[in-house]
Design a protein around this nucleic acid. Structure first.
Lengths: 216, 216
DNA sequence: CTTGACATAGTAATGATTACTAATTATCTC
DNA sequence: GAGATAATTAGTAATCATTACTATGTCAAG
C-alpha cells in the first residue's frame, strides 16, 4: 500500500457500497457510480475496490460464483445465498447454532444446505515453516507498532515517508518516526533519502516470519 | 443432458480425475489427458467435465478461487484449503464437530478459520413459489421414476428414445418405456415419432414444480 | 513553481471458460 | 449392410470478469 488519497471517485464508491443493501459486484457499482461521475472508468472502480479492500475500508468476499462481490461490513460473518434468485445476504450466527432450526426463522430463508471451507496450513507447509524458523533463531523481537510500520513498509516496497506510513497504519506521525528509527537501528529499514524509509531484505524476512507465526 | 456416450476421451478424463489425489482444475487435467490423447482439445475437456458432472459421474466444486475444480468423490463433503500452498484437501467431519480441536489432528492442518455459505430460498422466492403452486392446484402426482424420466426429458429438450433416457437415469430401458407411456397419458410427454418422446409444456411445469418443493 | 508521487480515463491484454464450426464417429432404422 | 440421424470431436473464435498499461492529470511539499 502506498500513500492513500481519499479522492472523489473513492468517496463515491464507498458511498455506493454503503448505500447498497447487499453485496454489489464491480460492474453493478460501476453502473451506480457512473450516475454521479459519468466519466469514471470501469478500471478505476476495479482498482479502487482492490485498494479500498486492502486498506481495510471494505471487504472483498471470497464466495462462489464468477464475479467478486464487495461488502461494507468489516466484521467476520458468513453468507446465505438464494439458489433461485442468487441474491446474497449476511448471516450472523455462531457456528454452534448452524444446525439449530432457529436460524431459519431469523433470516426467513428455507435452508437446504451449506458448504464449509476451512483455512489453515497443511502439514507440509507447517514443516517448511518450522525449518525456516529454526534457521534464523535469535530472530528479531518487534513490538506491535514496529510490526505495523514494517508491514506497511513491506507492502509499499518503495521508499516512503513517516507520514505515508501514518496514513495507512492508524498511528500518529511522531509514533511512526520513532519506530522507523528503531527499525533502522535493527537493520530492518534504511533511509535512502532524508525522511524516506525503505524496508531491507532482513526487514522483509522478519516481517514474513511474524506473519507465519500464527499462534494466536 | 442428451444421449450419453462413454467415449474414449471421457474414459481417460474420468481415469485421470480418479488417479489424481486432489482436486484438479480443467487445465491441469488437460495437461495430463494430453499425454494419453495428444490430439484432445481443451474445449473437449471442459465440455466433458461439464457433462460428466451433470451426469453425476464427478462433482464440480464451487469453491473460492479463479478456477473451477473437479472431484471424483460424489458424496457430500467439505474442503480445507492451505493458505500457503493453496492445495485443497477433503475434510469429512460433521458440522457439529467443526469446532472440536480433534479435527485438526485428523487432517494435520493447523486451522485458522472457516467460511460457511448457506444455500436456500429467500423469503421473496418462497412467496413467489407459493403463489405459483396455488395457481396449479390439483397438480399431477409423479412417482420417483416418473420424475427421473421427466427430468431427463426436460434437460434433453429434443425428442429422445427410451434407451437415451435409460442411459442417463440409471434405470433399465423397460422401466423407462413403462414410465414414458404413463407420462404420455398424463399429457406430460408426447411421441412425435415412433419410439421418440419429448416433454410437453405441462411436463416442464410439473418438473419445475417438483424441483421447488424441496421439503426433504 | 518545480518536482515527483499518486490517480485517473481509456484501452489493451489476460486467463478461464463457453460457443461455434465443420468434420468425424457411433447408433438406429429399414 | 446402407443411409439417416444424432452425438462427439478438434480447432478456433468469442465472451466475461479482471488486470495491466499508457499517457495525462492532480496534488502537496520543498
Amino acid at each position: 500500500m502506498k500513500c492513500f488519497r481519499m479522492t472523489n471517485q473513492r468517496e463515491v464508491i464507498l458511498e455506493e457500497i454503503a448505500k447498497y443493501k447487499g453485496h454489489p459486484t464491480a460492474d453493478l457499482l460501476y453502473e451506480r457510480v457512473r450516475k454521479k461521475l459519468p466519466r469514471i472508468s470501469l478500471a478505476t472502480v476495479y482498482r479502487n475496490l482492490e485498494i479500498l479492500s486492502k486498506a481495510g475500508k471494505i471487504r472483498k468476499l471470497e464466495i462462489s460464483g464468477r464475479q467478486k462481490r464487495f461488502d461494507r461490513e468489516l466484521e467476520e460473518h458468513n453468507h446465505i445465498c438464494c439458489v433461485q434468485c442468487h441474491r446474497i445476504d449476511n448471516i450472523h450466527i455462531a457456528p454452534e447454532q448452524m444446525l439449530a432450526s432457529g436460524s431459519e426463522q431469523k433470516t426467513g430463508y428455507k435452508i437446504f444446505g451449506w458448504r464449509v471451507e476451512f483455512f489453515g496450513i497443511c502439514p507440509e507447509c507447517q514443516e517448511k515453516n518450522a525449518a525456516n524458523a529454526k534457521k534464523q533463531k535469535g530472530a528479531v523481537r518487534l513490538n506491535e507498532r514496529q510490526l505495523k510500520v514494517l508491514t506497511a513498509l513491506k507492502t509499499c516496497g518503495k521508499p516512503c515517508t513517516g507520514r505515508d506510513i501514518a496514513a495507512v497504519t492508524s498511528l500518529e506521525p511522531p509514533q511512526v518516526r520513532c519506530q522507523l528509527s528503531a527499525l533502522k537501528k535493527k537493520g530492518l529499514a534504511v533511509s535512502p533519502a532524508r525522511c524516506k524509509y525503505k524496508i531491507t531484505k532482513a526487514g522483509k524476512i522478519a516481517c514474513e516470519c511474524k506473519e507465519n507465526e500464527c499462534d494466536g
